[in-house]
Write a protein that binds this DNA or RNA. Sequence first.
DNA 1: AGTTTTTTTAATCAATTGATTAAAAAAACT
DNA 2: AGTTTTTTTAATCAATTGATTAAAAAAACT
Lengths: 200, 200
Amino acid sequence: MDQSTEEKIKTAARKIFHEKGYSGTRTRDIAEEAGINLALLNYYFRNKKRLFELVMSDSLEDFFSSIRGAFVDTSTDLDQKIQIIINNYLDQLTANPNIPIFLLNELRSNPDALVKKSELRGVLNSSSFMQQLEERLKETKQTGINPFHLIVNILGLTVFPFMASPMIKEMRQINDEQFMAFIEERRTLIPQWIQLMIKK
Amino acid sequence: MDQSTEEKIKTAARKIFHEKGYSGTRTRDIAEEAGINLALLNYYFRNKKRLFELVMSDSLEDFFSSIRGAFVDTSTDLDQKIQIIINNYLDQLTANPNIPIFLLNELRSNPDALVKKSELRGVLNSSSFMQQLEERLKETKQTGINPFHLIVNILGLTVFPFMASPMIKEMRQINDEQFMAFIEERRTLIPQWIQLMIKK
DNA sequence: AGTTTTTTTAATCAATTGATTAAAAAAACT
DNA sequence: AGTTTTTTTAATCAATTGATTAAAAAAACT
């Protein structure tokens, strides 16, 4: 495990920024986590802000990358895509449960970070998935419904429980392991629910 | 508008804490927002932490209070309750769009705040709504599904778009007004989707 | 009207935080 | 082996932040 100092800092910064957000994170926290001298943060990354922007950009990329493939793939049909998107998201969120709340909380004060990812908008809006959704809504006589609602629903059913995990755990008096079992139950349920919304 | 100084501080604190979170908020921000002298925060509330805990407690109360009535009301049936809960939530979130992300972000670092509201767990778990949900799942041969999933779904479909509003606005290139129109569309759609999940 | 209590103010302080500095150590180059 | 460049270190600094202080002003009490 011979990580360079620069890599050590990045890894540590990702972890701590995800947990504490930008203003809750001290550069000393990152240095401690990385096991390096505090001044190295400025030597390698100039200042806290730059390091954060790097982590923010990477995290946005991570958030979208696990589903981009499924969105644009023309060889799968709508039902397959729904399954793949939800599965890929659950896998990714299981590995990085802090990403959604981190991203959405930071985007509140700095929405511009997303503008730099404007390419994603293009990908999403012209995706095979979007077209297939529109066609399905036509077939099911639901043309009054903006297909974007369905995308929000997939995200809401998949992502929200991770963001609300403290509340869910407290309300149901369950531990982390039991929470993850709850999430696994949803792996098959969410696609079924989405299917009901666009049923032929 | 003869608010006392104490009230002015509370109002300002709620606003700023909701926007910036605990660590992103300086006591000077609150004082400026309230139009009062900085030292008055300590005079009236002793320190930043106490003021925050007060705002946190109130905000949790607000988050749950708009739906508590509907949960325990025994004179309405399940379908009516779903409608009322979603409507009440949308009204409340429209008035205070920052509450969910504020609460869930702060609960990540301090879940204990919720333990102080443990009474809510009792209310939820023994509520008329919960019982009606269980009965409906029985009637529809879905006894393998924990009814709590449906509650998470209602929240996910209702609350998540508010939390994700920066992303939704950017992805669809819409302004605040258009975002609220998007939310209003969901007012009738969400109950329909939920009904599909528990359809007889 | 005088006295006491409460509220407010501007200045100041102690601690913290992001950042800088100068020197030492290590690596790379000749 | 000597020189140059890069990396690391511990100390220090400048700015910021939550909090305190002492005095003035206002309100309440007698």
